[in-house]
């Protein structure tokens, strides 16, 4: 994976398509614009894994993807509830947050297998906590901080 430092500062253009692979240094506005564009392009069933540290912008990105996908409601952090469900233009959206999971056996109690078998858009924050139960066909989005810059993130798409 590209390290944040290896991304040229001048390279601020957005990923060309939702499934383009690579790393981009983005402002918050760029990140939101990318998420909305990706949301408009997605068709169900589709699983998106959103990884990155606390405060790296995962929920902001998930909110933008939902907006692009046609979700009208206010999309909030699902950390406590573990799963939030919304109605998008093409299907239900399940916004999962596995932060509070202690191990992957707890996935059964939150209806994991059911929601992954639906024709839905599934957004998963803290996907690494799903371990081997993360499906194989997943679009990976990873967010990194850049030093102490509040408004810049490095987004990595499609790389494990």
């Amino acid at each position: 994976m590209l390290s944040p430092e290896s991304v040229p500062v001048a390279d601020v253009e957005m990923p060309a398509s939702a499934i383009a692979r690579g790393s981009w240094r983005l402002s918050r506005d760029d990140l939101v614009a990318f998420g909305e564009r990706m949301g408009r392009a997605l068709a169900p069933p589709h699983v998106v894994a959103l990884s990155g540290d606390l405060g790296s912008g995962k929920t902001t990105l998930a909110q933008a993807i939902c907006r692009g996908y046609g979700v009208k409601e206010n999309v909030t952090s699902p950390t406590f509830a573990l799963v939030h469900a919304y109605e998008g233009k093409h299907s239900t959206v399940y916004h999962c947050d596995l932060y509070r999971l202690r191990d992957e056996s707890e996935l059964t109690n939150i209806g994991w297998d059911d929601l992954l078998n639906e024709r839905a858009l599934v957004l998963i924050e803290w996907p690494e906590r799903a371990g081997s139960r993360l499906p194989e066909e997943v679009t990976h989005l990873h967010l990194d901080h850049v030093g102490d810059q509040t408004d810049v993130r490095v987004l990595t798409v499609g790389l494990e």
Binding site: N74, S77, F80
Partner: peptide, 18 residues
């Protein structure tokens, strides 16, 4: 009114972690 993103208790939990 409501939260636009993180709930108040969640903010306490995550800041505690930080």
């Amino acid at each position: 009114g409501a939260t636009r993103d993180d709930a108040a208790g969640e903010a306490f939990d995550k800041v505690a972690k930080l």
